[in-house]
Amino acid sequence: MNKVKQLYKHFDYPLFLTYIILALFGLLMVYSSSMIQGLNKFDDSTYYFSKQLKHVLLAIPLFFVVAAIPHQHYKDKKVMVVMVIAMIASLFSVLVFGFGKEEVGSKSWIRTPIGNFQPSEFAKIIIILYFSSFFAKKNEKGTLEQFNKSVGPPLFILGFVAGLVMLETDVGATLIIVFVAMTVIMASGLSLKSFLRMIVAMFVVIIPMVALLLLFKSNTILTDGRQGRLKAFMDPFKYPEGSGLQIINSFLAIGSGGITGLGLGQSVQKLGYLPEPHTDMIFAVISEELGIFGTTIVLGGIGFIVFRAFSIGLKTKSPQARMLTFGLGSLFGIQTVLNIGGLTSVIPLTGVTLPFISYGGTSFILLSLALGILMNVSMFVKKELSDKGV
């Protein structure tokens, strides 16, 4: 308990304040963007807001609990074995036992007594913890550059997990899992030569698995909706009444918002033109209603978290802490790029949520846990530097 108190003396207030601002702003925009949806589906304009508020009120205490757990515990072999098994079991439960529901083209949810749970969100964090733990131990033993000993287990786990998530046809989550794993490897301290070999080996493992999935599960993965998204990415105006409608309405929302926005609650596109405007398309509503002011809050807040994560990683001497911060920072950054890139047609739509802003209990809670881990590392690094008189 005394160690926890000493650690909390180095609490990262800017990081926590950014988290709270994003959470409150997200609540406000979930309410604004979901009013019509709530009235039409549940005769309650506050339906989605009320549920998201419960998610936030649950997530904040969990954030503090996780922030108090020393990140070094994640190097414990027993802890990581339990986490990896739990991750794989939960992903299997969606596919094998069928406890999922079709949602936005992917079957990635499990119904539980306390609500719906999305295992792929869980997998994003576990992959970061596992890769950081694995390569930190290799670093300590001095075997990091011994390629044959370093490449096997993590790439097998990554390929297996990516394959399971791809079978759910959750392409966005698959991309995030692969890219955050690459970021952790990049921060591991490997030489450039070994890093490039690792990346090549990663794709040697993953590409055949994807090819097999496409060969045997092409109808499941390349659905009409997903093919439509690819066509809409190339030219949404060619399919104005079909697959391009969502992106076109997103363009209209962002364009009509301009610099100042139409005003809070005044979005036109949320009135049935944008499907599910409170989830992965919420940034378009923010742009329409609040203009540059609203988008600056979102991009500035998430950008600060990413910057903070990377700056913490550059200060620490601990390989595990460095890999955790770079992995967690990339998680927030990559997910934001995929979300906003999709609705602006820079990349195809993937359906991933906007961190701390979009409606979604699993996403908000697990990203809060991720931020709690980052907070613990931040406090550890600040204490480390303080003890050294820096």
Rank of each mutant, 00 (worst) to 15 (best):
A309N: 00
S368F: 05
G244K: 07
I206T: 03
S108I: 05
M323V: 02
E241I: 12
M234C: 12
L213G: 09
F25Y: 04
V96F: 12
F364N: 05
K317N: 10
K315C: 06
L91M: 08
Q118T: 12
P240V: 06
I69K: 11
R229A: 01
I373F: 00
S330P: 10
M323D: 01
G142Q: 03
I157G: 00
S50A: 15
D12S: 03
K107I: 10
G26T: 07
H73L: 15
Y19L: 06
K238V: 13
F293N: 12
P70C: 02
R226P: 00
S330F: 08
F135R: 02
Q72I: 09
F283K: 04
R322K: 15
W109C: 07
T112K: 10
K315R: 13
F63D: 09
L371H: 06
P14W: 08
K101N: 15
I365N: 09
I292P: 09
G303T: 08
M35Y: 10
I127G: 01
F97D: 07
L62Y: 08
K54W: 11
L28R: 04
F283N: 06
S90V: 05
L15M: 14
R197V: 08
M186F: 15
I21N: 00
S191G: 13
S150T: 12
S45R: 14
I347Q: 09
V94C: 00
M182A: 15
F122G: 00
M186A: 12
M281G: 02
L167E: 00
Q227Y: 10
F42M: 14
V346S: 04
F135H: 08
F216Q: 07
T295C: 09
A211P: 06
K107H: 14
S34P: 03
F49D: 00
L22M: 08
K54R: 15
G98F: 09
T183E: 03
F92A: 15
G329L: 07
A201L: 00
L7Q: 15
S106D: 08
L328W: 03
L53C: 03
F25C: 06
G98S: 11
F326V: 03
S132P: 05
A370F: 05
A23F: 00
T220C: 08
V337R: 07
G333H: 07
S32I: 07
I85D: 12
A136Q: 03
G263P: 07
K382C: 11
L17Q: 09
L7Y: 11
G291T: 05
N249P: 01
M209W: 05
N148S: 15
Q246W: 04
K270I: 08
L299C: 13
S318I: 08
Q118K: 13
N219S: 12
G258W: 13
T183C: 06
Q227D: 10
R308Q: 13
I373W: 01
G291C: 11
V306S: 08
G361R: 01
M87Q: 10
V82A: 13
V337T: 13
V66Q: 04
L24W: 01
S133V: 06
